[in-house]
Simulated scan of single mutants.
Amino acid sequence: MEKADTPLEKVRAEIAGTCRIARRDPGEVTLVAVSKTQPADRIVPLLEQGQRHFGENRVQEAQGKWPELKERFPAAQLHLVGQLQSNKAEDAAKLFDCIHSLDRPSLVKALAKAFDKTGRRLSCFVQVDVGEEEQKGGCAIAELASLLDRARDADIPIAGLMCIPPFDIDPAPFFALLDKLARDHGLEGRSMGMSADYPAAIMLGATHVRVGTALFGGRG
């Protein structure tokens, strides 16, 4: 195996190795480089190495750096991985390419209106509160079917489900739960796994892993 010199090469090698163990095609897993809090000059090297999917937590922060970056690297795809306020839906629709945090009926309504106004229909993951943690965003499991119906009725493209497991305990059962929920609802996408646990997420069906620290080494 060739030596992996850069953090991006190391993460890509880890993804490929985990996929081999899981008997999955590495092409099934999209690496989303979470660039929140990182300045543009730390993002450009990854773009130059061919990384194309990036994640941001806040619309306003992304507005400050990504229009210029997208002009320089038009193939870049921007994912909103943090909570989205309904009043920022139109701004998100203009800048982002995918939303990972659709979690409530009011946001369905706001996004449907924003998509109609901008003429852009972004793929969305429905965030599920798999750990029943009130302080985190996410749709309650009992309300998932209803929210999916509302989103489909509003002509919002549903890419799959997303979760953030509770910290400091084994995330595998929560990844397995999200995988089961996705299967039960006939959804292909599973946005799960971050720097500390993305190999486990891949073993349990992740299609999108959201990796920040392992690529950037901390906050900018």
Score class of each variant (00 low, 15 high):
M203T: 06
A112W: 05
A196G: 15
M203C: 13
A93V: 13
A16S: 12
E61N: 06
G64F: 10
I141M: 11
Q135C: 05
E132K: 15
W66L: 01
Q49V: 08
Q63H: 11
V34Y: 00
E48I: 09
G212Y: 03
E68P: 05
G131M: 05
L178S: 09
L147C: 09
Q49S: 15
H53T: 11
L204V: 02
H53V: 13
K136V: 01
L204E: 03
K113L: 01
D149A: 14
P199T: 15
R121M: 05
F216Q: 02
L147V: 10
A40C: 07
T207L: 10
H79I: 08
R24F: 00
P173M: 14
G17P: 00
D184T: 13
S101D: 06
H100N: 07
A13S: 14
H185G: 12
E143K: 13
L181C: 11
L80I: 10
D149F: 08
A62Y: 09
R210K: 10
A182S: 14
D168M: 03
N87K: 15
A206H: 07
A196P: 08
A172N: 05
N87P: 09
A110E: 00
E56G: 11
K36L: 09
G189L: 10
L46C: 07
D25M: 01
P166G: 05
P166Q: 06
M203P: 02
